[in-house]
């Protein structure tokens, strides 16, 4: 038992943070809102220099951890790029040539669609197809979301279920990164802001709200790391259940934590000038596509009924 991230992944995360900082940090996301039609080559180049494109997540556990950390770091600045989609292993074992995303087949859409001319999409049922992105919504909640047009029907693919699990884990890591940053900026804000002659953090109600949010975010980090490990060690069906569990929990956690962090910012929480507003706004597509937490929960409950949910604990050993 060793729940620590491998050292190379930690170092990779530090490099990614520097690189994303050099790109402007969260300002990159702010700027991208006004130029959402074009792929941001600087981001692609930075990810290439980091070596994200070369991470072989299915064959190298350190690389898988580095990929997860890259997504966490991308989440901290809501990097306007589908890092998870590019890290997801291809369905046939070859090098990925287009980003992957899970979609709702009745209204397929992807975040950051305009960054690639063609996507690989899946409803999460072991089938995939390719798709071409349309025009970004360019709304405040979905600045980079594009509906996509499948080029054909969804066809069975050997690695599609595994790809869905990896994508769910990586996108959950993006959510984790955004929530960790949201909590950091909220601690900074409530420490600096004085009301009634005291910093906000002197009020127990604020301290308790922060503590509860911290527990939620810390729990999501643990579940993310555990799921990352399971993807490298468990069978595909088992890992798929674990990935569903992670995604559902990430969505549930995000809703509560973002609400707390926004509330503790007061009116500043809705101002684009503040990171919390940007994090909450730009994370919405990741929290809604392809489906909501309740839909995932239904799928998860059904999957557990079939395959169980042992993971850390041998349920079958109980009478």
């Amino acid at each position: 038992m060793n729940p620590l991230l491998p050292e190379p992944a930690v170092a990779f995360g530090e490099s990614a943070r520097r690189a994303f900082g050099d790109l402007g940090g969260i300002d990159r996301a702010r700027r991208a809102e006004h130029d959402h039609d074009h792929p941001d080559r600087a981001i692609a180049d930075a990810l290439g220099s980091l070596g994200v494109d070369d991470l072989s997540v299915t064959t190298d556990t350190d690389a898988a951890a580095a990929g997860a950390v890259a997504c966490i770091e991308a989440g901290r600045v809501v990097l306007p790029w589908p890092v998870a989609g590019w890290l997801t292993p291809s369905c046939d074992g070859s090098a990925r040539t287009r980003p992957f995303a899970l979609v709702d087949p009745t209204d397929p859409a992807v975040d950051h669609g305009a960054t690639a001319p063609r996507w690989e999409i899946s409803p999460g049922n072991g089938r995939v197809t390719t798709a071409t992105p349309g025009t970004p919504l360019a709304t405040r909640l979905g600045p980079f979301v594009t509906r996509v047009t499948p080029t054909g029907g969804f066809e069975p693919a050997t690695g599609a279920l595994a790809a869905a699990a990896w994508w769910s884990m990586f996108t959950s890591c993006r959510i984790l990164g955004a929530l960790e940053r949201a909590l950091e900026v909220t601690v900074e804000h409530t420490s600096a802001r004085h009301q009634f002659g005291r910093p906000l953090t002197a009020f127990q109600t604020v301290r308790f709200a922060l503590a509860d949010a911290k527990v939620e975010v810390a729990g999501l980090r643990e579940l993310s790391l555990f799921t990352l490990w399971r993807l490298g060690t468990a069978s595909v069906p088992d890992a798929h259940v674990d990935a569903l569990a992670l995604r559902m929990h990430a969505l549930d956690t995000a809703r509560g934590v973002l609400r707390t962090c926004r509330q503790l910012h007061g009116a500043a929480g809705v101002c684009d000038e503040y990171e919390i507003a940007m994090l909450g706004r730009h994370l919405q597509p990741t929290l809604r596509l392809p489906d909501d937490a309740d839909t995932v929960a239904v799928e998860l409950a059904g999957s557990i009924r079939v395959g169980g949910f042992d993971g850390l604990f041998d349920h079958a050993g109980h009478r």
Partner: peptide, 13 residues
């Protein structure tokens, strides 16, 4: 199902 996941999280913490 949600509780199973939350219990897993508690164990991991």
């Amino acid at each position: 199902a949600r509780l199973l996941v939350r219990v897993r999280v508690a164990r991991l913490l």
